[in-house]
Design a binder for these strands. Structure first.
Lengths: 151, 151
DNA sequence: CAAATTTATATCGTTCACGATGCAAAAGTA
DNA sequence: TACTTTTGCATCGTGAACGATATAAATTTG
């Protein structure tokens, strides 16, 4: 069948696309009570690990463009989670730092990863299978990242 | 470290989220010349396999909500790729069918899956590793789907 | 040092993605 | 048959994601 490939290959990309959407959905019960979204949670994770970072560093760690991260941070600032101040050495930079509310949310979010792990294990029976997927995903991400920046 | 988990678990979800975005990005060079987006390409794949389907069937196959698919189809209709007609048996339904342009695009898109496979192989060295990921992703998707509809 | 280039962020426009809500048609129930 | 519920789709509002473009500050170059 000439068009058989059209069905077949979407396998990987379509599944990644779907799995990503559904796992993000699995965060909803935990993030909704905190009033944050999954991408906002990612920003908090980055800042909890190291406070006071310029927009660029945050974007780079999340592999997002700054024009995605800037509005995200603006919404988080409006929500009182972070504040954005001008950089002292390089005044082009905007240094993003956690507010009291942003710092305190760490405590409330402490159990989310554990809850989600448990949920995935409960849903799928075993954990190892998914732990094994991680290096493959990293390899794919690393390769695609290079592909898209170099050329 | 009390907060160690916060870093660790994002492993899976963050990687899925990132891998999905980047692989969708890898479609750009092939879809841009056709003037379609990745979700629109997915809709076309569904219709190429079987023409004339109600909105609901398309949404169900893509695991998307109808309120995502409806605007998507409206844009595709405006672009002249599909038309949407009222259902005859059930007049609530909107039957989506391919236009001449939509049918002809199949020929132009024929090689996309092959190109993408090649690219992934070239980027990452081997194919098997990613073929092996597919059943795991299916298991995850299936489980999360149940979780989110049942409760 | 002045001019050109790069860098850090912001803004704009378009397209998803989805919760909430609305509405009309179909299906089920009394 | 009248009434209630469900179903199929549409609309609205919000938050990503990102390409394109803008702007000011830093850096490089001549």
């Amino acid at each position: 069948m000439e068009y058989e490939q059209l069905k077949l290959d979407n396998q990987l990309c379509f599944r990644l696309y779907t799995a990503a959407r559904l796992t993000m959905g699995a965060y909803h019960p935990y993030l909704d009570p905190l009033g944050i979204t999954y991408p906002q949670y990612l920003v908090l994770l980055v800042l909890w690990e190291q406070d006071k970072q310029p927009v660029n560093d945050i974007a780079h760690k999340l592999l997002l463009e700054t024009n995605t991260v800037t509005p995200l941070l603006q919404r988080m600032e409006k929500a009182g989670l972070v504040k954005r101040t001008k950089g002292k050495e390089d005044t082009r930079q905007r240094i993003v730092s956690l507010t009291k509310k942003g710092i305190e949310m760490r405590e409330q979010a402490k159990h989310i990863p554990e809850c989600l792990s448990d949920e995935i294990i409960q849903i799928t029976g075993e954990e190892e299978e998914f732990v094994r997927m991680i290096p493959s995903l990293d390899k794919l991400i690393e390769g695609l990242k290079k592909q898209q920046t170099n050329q």
